[in-house]
């Protein structure tokens, strides 16, 4: 069921996007987005319409923009291009992918600059502030599992990045729309309650993508950190029985390091942070093909 965003709110967001920027707080980051594209305005209204807005004088971490590139081509095959502080790290994509490009671009901004955290490519969900870290390669089913868990009442900290504080060792929430691909879109559309999906975008580099709106109460806890409780490496395999296999600590450390965006930049701090994380946090590999059964197994880990 689509979320209802009042027209007046949509107009407000559209004006901000076309003006000095739609300035919101996303997790620990202050973001300002500018765009003249209607698709971006519609999606920002749906997914980020109720995020806290920043005061006019607030420091902004990421000034980003998604707009049509200049040139004749934009009249023939409209494209969108992402820029960060005027720098364009990616080639343009079809305009239909403009909102996805914002999501991917913001991921890139955070992964390449937020070195106050150890940033791990991972979904993170929590129950009673006990966080489950779900690292995973593309195709492992991490986002599908994350979306299903969130729709069953788990708190979303992030679908894409675990922000691990090297000193406090907790995980800072970065709640944003959950990116789903291909078959996962229909699986989640028909799964559970509380599921709001945006439009499907076809023919991206990842296939068809759609985003799931985090449940409304996610933002109420958007500043509350959670303690890592378990690391679960999901592996979706068609027809597989649900099975949890313990992983030893040395192998867990090297696997999480491989999934980190900035471990190599943090150096000794990154290694020390990962060593503590792995020492305090049991790890398992989860093979699954059935969401309910997988979630029941993870529930049992924290109960």
């Amino acid at each position: 069921m689509p979320a209802i965003i009042p027209n007046s709110r949509q107009d407000e967001i559209r004006r901000a996007l076309r003006g000095d920027g739609y300035r919101i707080k996303i997790g620990p980051f202050n973001v300002s987005l500018r765009s003249r594209l209607n698709k971006v305005a519609e999606s920002m209204s749906l997914f980020y319409g109720d995020y806290p807005q920043l005061p006019a004088d607030a420091f902004v971490d990421y000034h980003v923009r998604v707009d049509n590139p200049l040139g004749l081509r934009r009249w023939l095959h409209p494209q969108a291009i992402f820029s960060f502080d005027g720098f364009t790290p990616f080639k343009p994509l079809p305009e239909a992918q403009a909102f996805a490009m914002f999501e991917w671009g913001l991921n890139w901004c955070i992964a390449t600059t937020a070195h106050q955290f150890l940033v791990v490519h991972s979904a993170v969900v929590a129950k009673d502030d006990r966080a489950i870290i779900l690292p995973g390669d593309p195709g492992s089913g991490k986002s599908t599992l994350c979306a299903a868990m969130v729709s069953q009442g788990w708190r979303l900290l992030s679908d894409e990045m675990a922000l691990i504080d090297p000193e406090a060792e907790h995980i800072t929430p970065l709640p944003r729309p959950i990116g789903l691909k291909n078959e996962s879109i229909e699986i989640i559309r028909t799964y559970g309650n509380n599921v709001t999906l945006g439009p499907s975008i076809n023919d991206t580099a990842k296939g068809t993508v759609a985003h799931m709106r985090p449940p409304p109460d996610t933002l109420q806890h958007a500043t509350r950190a959670a303690q890592p409780d378990h690391i679960v490496f999901p592996r979706y395999t068609t027809g597989a029985a649900t099975e949890l296999r313990p992983l030893n600590k040395p192998r867990t450390l090297t696997r999480v390091a491989e999934q980190s965006f900035n471990y190599h930049i943090l150096g000794e701090d990154g290694f020390t942070t990962l060593t503590r994380l792995v020492s305090n946090c049991p790890a398992v590999e989860l093979s699954y093909s059935h969401l309910d059964s997988a979630i029941a197994q993870i529930d049992a880990l924290v109960s």
């Binding site: 030893n248 600590k249 150096g267 290694f271 990962l274």
Partner: peptide
């Protein structure tokens, strides 16, 4: 040279700050 060692594990993880290598 930095080490991650656990009493109940046979394998260890080595990190070399100079090269950035992490080895199991």
């Amino acid at each position: 040279f930095h080490w991650a060692v656990w009493d109940d594990e046979e394998e260890e993880v080595f990190y070399h700050q100079g090269s950035g290598e992490t080895l199991l």
